[in-house]
């Protein structure tokens, strides 16, 4: 993933930001789809994994912002916590994929995803507790809302994202992480 040029990374990031705006609209028409997981997580995580942490961070910030400003999803009131959560996803997934090197693609992806998703939830939870609901958040409520809803989201991302990465590699749109030699 380090072999892409700066221009490629920039344009891929642009497309991921675009998908942050488009995917929620597409999923909106499917009953129950948006409720279990936010489709916006997918392009952000993918952007971080493929293009690196600065671009992942940008995608995590610009995606929800543009989506809210253009389509009204998520509603402005939920924007700040989404921004923090997604920015963390993009940042951490990008950092992790560079740090981890198990020589196995799936292992690298799973580790990076789990760490990124946990980090995102924790940071957003802390931010919410400190800034937005100062003092009113009980520990029980925080644990409940963040970890119980974490599980389904985690499973979904762990299924979808590696599939996407492999598909993109097969289509030769992104370089192979561990090219088969000979």
């Amino acid at each position: 993933m380090t072999k892409m040029s700066a221009v490629q990374r920039a344009v891929f990031t642009a497309v991921c930001i675009g998908l942050c705006v488009v995917l929620p609209m597409a999923f909106h028409a499917i009953p129950n789809a948006g409720v279990i997981f936010s489709p916006m997580h997918i392009p952000v995580l993918l952007c971080g994994l493929i293009c690196g942490w600065p671009f992942g961070l940008l995608c995590g910030l610009a995606g929800p912002l543009l989506s809210s400003l253009i389509t009204g999803m998520p509603p402005m009131a939920y924007l700040p916590s989404m921004l923090i959560e997604l920015a963390t996803y993009g940042l951490v997934s990008g950092l992790m994929i560079n740090l981890v090197n198990t020589k196995k693609l799936y292992a690298d992806l799973y580790i990076s995803l789990v760490v990124a998703l946990l980090a995102g939830r924790i940071v957003a939870g802390i931010a919410k507790a400190l800034i937005f609901a100062a003092g009113k958040y009980t520990l029980a409520a925080w644990v409940t809302s963040y970890f119980i809803t974490l599980w389904p989201g985690l499973v979904i991302q762990l299924i979808l994202i590696p599939t996407l990465v492999v598909a993109l590699m097969k289509a030769r749109l992104i370089p192979e992480r561990y090219p088969v030699q000979g």
């Binding site: 040029s5 221009v7 490629q8 920039a10 344009v11 891929f12 642009a14 497309v15 675009g18 998908l19 995917l23 597409a26 789809a33 279990i36 997918i42 392009p43 993918l46 499973v155 979904i156 299924i159 979808l160 599939t163 996407l164 598909a167 993109l168 289509a171 749109l173 992104i174």
Partner: peptide
């Protein structure tokens, strides 16, 4: 299973999006 049912939607969308991105780049 629910997550996997979105693969036929999500994979082609990303592939075609990245293809356009690559052309532009």
């Amino acid at each position: 299973e629910r997550a996997a049912s979105f693969i036929p939607l999500v994979v082609p969308v990303f592939i075609s999006a990245f293809r356009r991105a690559e052309e532009l780049a």
